[in-house]
Amino acid sequence: MKKDGFDRRAFLKSAVAGGAAAATVSVPQSVQAQPTAATAAATAQGYAFLNPEEGAFVEALVDHMVPADELTPKGTDLGLNIFIDRSLAGGWGKGDRLYMQGPWKTGVPSQGYQLPLTPAELYRNGIAAANVHCVKTYKKTFDKVTAAEREEFLLALQAGKVTFENGPPSRTFFTTVYQTVMEGMFADPMYGGNRNKAGWKLIGFPGVIAVNYQNIEKYRDKPFPVNPVGIADMS
């Protein structure tokens, strides 16, 4: 093994006996953690979807959910706001793969998502409604309230104890928001979050390459030396 957790030559030799020529994949220049041009481009600042009010909401949200400590930098420093913005601006946010024909009925919880909103529309209208609620309750928008108030509000949202007036169901909004924060934290860094693979380093997840034919025995009940590799590192 040349480098911890990764040896492409060994991988090709052992894995591609089946004739799945991986010749289309170039050998990476570096598999170390330095951001490459591709990751740098993906994590460029600026929003493609969020407006200033929404941007402030999302930044406050991700920094609250993922605060800076000895384990990781804070959410905005990990690009979680960028991940969310890009997700909402892209196909998923626009309802790609979502059945969007009416009639629209609430249904019962076991029937799943039934709103006539794409994820981007749910986010936009949910943020507006959340800010209306925060102003009414705390006299300030979500991004300006105290950390204790923010915590109280998010816990109430998660527990389904908040009712949005003239907005989407608050619990559905929370579910989508929470899902995107966690995706941003642990998805491949090329999507803009998990910057420098901090989410993967937090738990010791090796990322893209995993040639473990021998490691199964070698690292049985032993710590695996993780130096995570992202898609951009190998492209």
Partner: peptide
């Protein structure tokens, strides 16, 4: 195909 669609690195994409 395996060569085009399931090859490393792009197949290792949980999202």
């Amino acid at each position: 195909s395996t060569e085009n669609d399931y090859s490393v690195p792009h197949v290792r994409d949980e999202l």
